[in-house]
Design a protein around this nucleic acid. Sequence first.
DNA 1: TGAAATAGAGTGATCGTTCTATCTATAAAA
DNA 2: TTTTATAGATAGAACGATCACTCTATTTCA
Lengths: 177, 177
Amino acid sequence: MSKKRQDVLEAAECLFYEEGFHAVGIKRIVSKSNVSLMTLYNHFESKEILILELLDHREQAYVSFLKNHVSQNKITDNLALKIATAHMNWLEANSFNGCMFLRAKEEYQNECEPIVDRVHQHKKFVIDMLESYGLSTEESLRLSLQLEGATALAETTDIQTVRAVFLSSVNTLFKAS
Amino acid sequence: MSKKRQDVLEAAECLFYEEGFHAVGIKRIVSKSNVSLMTLYNHFESKEILILELLDHREQAYVSFLKNHVSQNKITDNLALKIATAHMNWLEANSFNGCMFLRAKEEYQNECEPIVDRVHQHKKFVIDMLESYGLSTEESLRLSLQLEGATALAETTDIQTVRAVFLSSVNTLFKAS
DNA sequence: TGAAATAGAGTGATCGTTCTATCTATAAAA
DNA sequence: TTTTATAGATAGAACGATCACTCTATTTCA
């Protein structure tokens, strides 16, 4: 991948996540990424296409982060707790402003169908991933609700408090599974 | 409260919730509420102040909705489940696009401190309300995570599925309380 | 008679996007 | 090694549309 392209994606991801999609203009992204306006438009046809590619980029980052942390986790008897811990580490490292996918869907609900579709696809993808780890459909949904809850709670609550509440809930819900 | 003022608040609440704060312009609100531009500005000094008053309005609506539904709920042995059911009814009636407070905080994170402060205040208010129902601090946080999770999951998942997963989780977490 | 609401023009700023004209850097041809 | 050709990146002006907000002049209604 082109270095310029990567610079744009990283600046856009940071700005959009911190301030929202409609609140951040193309000029801000260009300025932050040290790239010219035309270079951005040579790589991305439009703002909406940039957002779509950003969501691809972020899904890949989240999934590989989870994979790595789950495989490194030493807990052996509780898969859900392994995944929850990995998700908690993701939140702690990157994300105190909600789920970027849900936020994209919320902002483009009545404006850009491809973005909304992409978000639904992502959430389905995560559920499928949980099932591929060996959870049942119902367990996947149940864990998914916990993951979403932790992400939201972390927006307004001290992260160590969220960790304790989140992991103990998951532990209770999935013990002796 | 003035009728015109009420009209503006209702139109703004609907539009902001459906499409986001930055995505909706004042002209759209004026147009939807059948009120003139100057009338809006006579009632609300600025867009940000309108949003702040909207959050007041919505907090009041949510709290009284919860109070009514909790008191009418016939479950006698599980307070958390009563509250969860009431929250589920709120989601089903009004809210398939996330938590309006979190969305306000996300969009105004680096732009308007009073809005961000108001959102933190709201979340603290909800926790306090849960405690005033008789839950411990830890139980309140635990239930709060479930409420946030249900709100988020309802954005991309069939509402009856959310209801089943949500209520069964709360039931497991709070049984024999 | 006086206060409130109206429509609509006007403010300067910013939006996403396009265009132009200049510059840089690498690679092929001399 | 020098010249030329090609492609990519640059800054910045310009587009029409919209942003939040103000002002004015007129109308409605108690």
